[in-house]
Amino acid sequence: MTTMTTPRRRIDWGRTAAWAALAVAIAVSLGPMLWMLRTALSSDHALASHSADLLPADFSWGAFARVFGLESPAQAIAEGGSGAAISFWQYLLNSLIVSTVITVSQVFFSSLAAYAFARLRWPGRDKVFSLFLGTLLVPSIFTALPNFLLVKNLGLLNTYLGIALPTMLMTPFAVFFLRQFFLGMSREVEEAAMLDGAKHARIFFQITLPNATAPLATLCLLTFITAWNDYFWPLLVGNDPSVRVLTVALGIFQSQSPQGAPDWSGLMAATLISALPILALFVAFGKKIVNSIGFSGIK
Score class of each variant (00 low, 15 high):
Thr2Asn: 05
Pro7Thr: 13
Arg8Pro: 06
Arg15Gln: 10
Leu22Tyr: 12
Val24Pro: 10
Ala25Pro: 04
Ile26Glu: 02
Met33Gln: 13
Leu37Glu: 05
Thr39Lys: 03
Ala40Val: 02
Leu41Ile: 05
Leu41Thr: 06
Ala63Tyr: 02
Glu71Cys: 04
Glu71Val: 11
Ile77His: 05
Gly81Thr: 02
Ala85Val: 08
Ile102Cys: 09
Phe109Trp: 03
Arg125Asp: 13
Asp126Met: 11
Asp126Phe: 13
Thr135Arg: 02
Ile141Pro: 01
Ile141Phe: 05
Thr143Leu: 07
Leu145Ser: 04
Phe148Met: 12
Leu156Ala: 11
Thr159Trp: 08
Tyr160Cys: 08
Tyr160Arg: 07
Ile163Lys: 00
Ala164Ser: 10
Ala174Trp: 04
Arg179Asp: 04
Phe181Asp: 06
Phe182Met: 04
Leu183His: 13
Met185Gln: 15
Glu191Val: 01
Ala193Leu: 03
Ala193Tyr: 00
Leu195Val: 10
Lys199Gln: 11
Ala201Gln: 11
Pro210Ser: 15
Pro215Tyr: 03
Leu222Ser: 10
Ile225Val: 15
Ile225Ser: 08
Asp230Tyr: 00
Tyr231Val: 03
Phe232Arg: 05
Val237Glu: 00
Asn239Gly: 07
Val245Lys: 06
Thr247His: 09
Leu250Ala: 05
Pro258Ile: 01
Leu267Trp: 04
Met268Arg: 00
Ala269Val: 05
Ala269Arg: 10
Ala270Met: 05
Thr271Val: 04
Gly294Ile: 06
Gly294Ser: 08
Gly294Asp: 06
Ile298Val: 08
